[in-house]
Amino acid sequence: MNCRQIRKKLSPYIDEQLDSRRQEQVRDHLQSCQNCSTVLHQLEQLEDLLQDDLRLQADAFTLTRIKAAISAKSDQPLPVWSLLQKVLAPSIVFAGLVLGVLLGIQLHNTFKRTPIVEPQTHTSLVDSTFFEPLPVGSITATYVSMNAIQK
């Protein structure tokens, strides 16, 4: 191997990641080559500098904090559900309103078709023949009889 090839292997050489045959080849070359030895020396100096391994330690509450964060996250409603809620709640209110108005109109029309509430038909109410006999005590019956009395 020439110098260029050897230098490429210097990094795995100091890490002892080469197979024994390669490791030996590099070692032999270094013994006879000053330039490659200098490069190796630089790399070894760097390794010394990196030796100051200021290693951090996770503190005792790391796990507790992680678990708290996870359960806080899973307590939140699912994104799909909260989106649905955002859309659903106003729609339900709106639908309720629409339904209410429609019901109101419907009721209004129902009573409008019944001549009972038509003031101008009051005169004919009592004699009216197209009414079925009203059940005694029903609201309509009471109303009709009240009208009759007023007359």
Partner: peptide, 24 residues
């Protein structure tokens, strides 16, 4: 793995406080 993850973060980020947050 907490120490290994923390130190990986520390070296890659270069700041202890941010490394602890990142590890979490």
């Amino acid at each position: 793995y907490q120490d290994r993850v923390l130190n990986t973060c520390f070296r890659l980020i270069g700041n202890e406080e941010e490394a602890r947050d990142a590890a979490q």
